[in-house]
C-alpha cells in the first residue's frame, strides 16, 4: 500500500523570524527524496513542522498512509507518530543513559507499536546485528556510527510508513557516511518506506535519492525531477561546489 507526503504553501516562523516561506514539496509513494541545503536554510524546521513539533504559520501537510489521507498540521507529535510517520532527528538524539535495548523499546512507546514490539525488535536486530550484540550497553557509550544505526533502528520500531531523516551524515567519518546512506537505501527497499532525507552531503545524498529539492533561505530554490538534473544544476554548483 502506498504512502506519500504532500506539503503545500507551508510558512513557518520562530517568533517574528520567518524561517520557511511557501514551501511546496512532494514525496511520492516509495520514493527517496533528498532535501538539500546548507546549514540554516530551514531543513530541520521543515522536519519539525511535519512532526508537529513546530506549528506552521500557514500551509498544509498531508500524509497519505496506506491509502488514507491525514492532515498533519494541527496534530500532536505522538498522534503523527501513531499514524506511521517517524523522524530520525539531527544529531541522533538518543537516550544516552538508557541501554540500546531500552532505546529501542522507547521507539515502540505507542500502543499500536507496542503490540508488534517483538516482531519489530527482531527486524531491527536483523537489519543491525551490531545492536543485538550491544543491547545491554548504554547508548551514550557507543561510537558515532553505531549511534546512527541505533537512531535508525529506534525510528523503525514505530513501524513507520513514512520516514524522515534529518542529516544522517552529521558527525560521521566519510566511510561511515557511505555505509549509513547505503543502509537507508536498503531499509527503504526492504520495508517499502517513503523517505524524505535532509542532507548537506550532496554527493552522498543523491546516490540513493530518486529526486531532490534544494532549499535556500527557507524557499525551495530548485526541484530536480531526477538525480542527473540535480547533478548538473547551476544552483548546486554555486552552493556546494563553490564554482
Amino acid at each position: 500500500m502506498a504512502s506519500s507526503l504532500t506539503i503545500k504553501g507551508l510558512d513557518a516562523a520562530y517568533g517574528s523570524v520567518r524561517v520557511l516561506e511557501d514551501i511546496a514539496l512532494e514525496v511520492r509513494a516509495g520514493e527517496t527524496v533528498a532535501l538539500l541545503g546548507t546549514n540554516g536554510n530551514g531543513k530541520s524546521t521543515l522536519m519539525k513542522c511535519v512532526m508537529g513539533m513546530l506549528r506552521p504559520v500557514a500551509g498544509s501537510i498531508v500524509a497519505e498512509i496506506d491509502g488514507t489521507r491525514h492532515e498533519l498540521n494541527g496534530l500532536a507529535t505522538e498522534e503523527i507518530v501513531e499514524l506511521g510517520v517517524a523522524l530520525v532527528p539531527e544529531g541522533r538524539r538518543l537516550f544516552p543513559k538508557l541501554t540500546v535495548e531500552e532505546n529501542l523499546y522507547l521507539g515502540a512507546y505507542r500502543r499500536t507499536a507496542r503490540a508488534q514490539l517483538k516482531r519489530n525488535l527482531a527486524h531491527c536486530f536483523d537489519a543491525f546485528p551490531r545492536l543485538a550484540e550491544r543491547r545491554r550497553q548504554l547508548a551514550g557509550d557507543m561510537s558515532g556510527g553505531e549511534q546512527q544505526m541505533l537512531a535508525l533502528g529506534r525510528a523503525l520500531m514505530t513501524a513507520p510508513r513514512i520516514l524522515l531523516i534529518d542529516e544522517p551524515s552529521v558527525g560521521l567519518a566519510p566511510l561511515l557516511v557511505r555505509r549509513t546512506i547505503d543502509k537507508i537505501k536498503e531499509l527503504q527497499e526492504q520495508y517499502a518506506l517513503t523517505v524524505l532525507m535532509a542532507e548537506q552531503n550532496f554527493t552522498q545524498a543523491i546516490r540513493i535519492a530518486d529526486r531532490g529539492y534544494v532549499i535556500v533561505h527557507g524557499k525551495i530554490a530548485f526541484a530536480g525531477e531526477t538525480a542527473e538534473e540535480l547533478n548538473n544544476n547551476e544552483l548546486i554548483r554555486e552552493f556546494y561546489l563553490g564554482a
Binding site: 512532526m51 505522538e78 538524539r93 537516550f95 514505530t158
Partner: peptide
Amino acid sequence: DDEQAAEVSGVP
C-alpha cells in the same frame, strides 16, 4: 534523558 527525542519516539 531527552525530551525532544522522546516526543519523536511517540511518547506523549
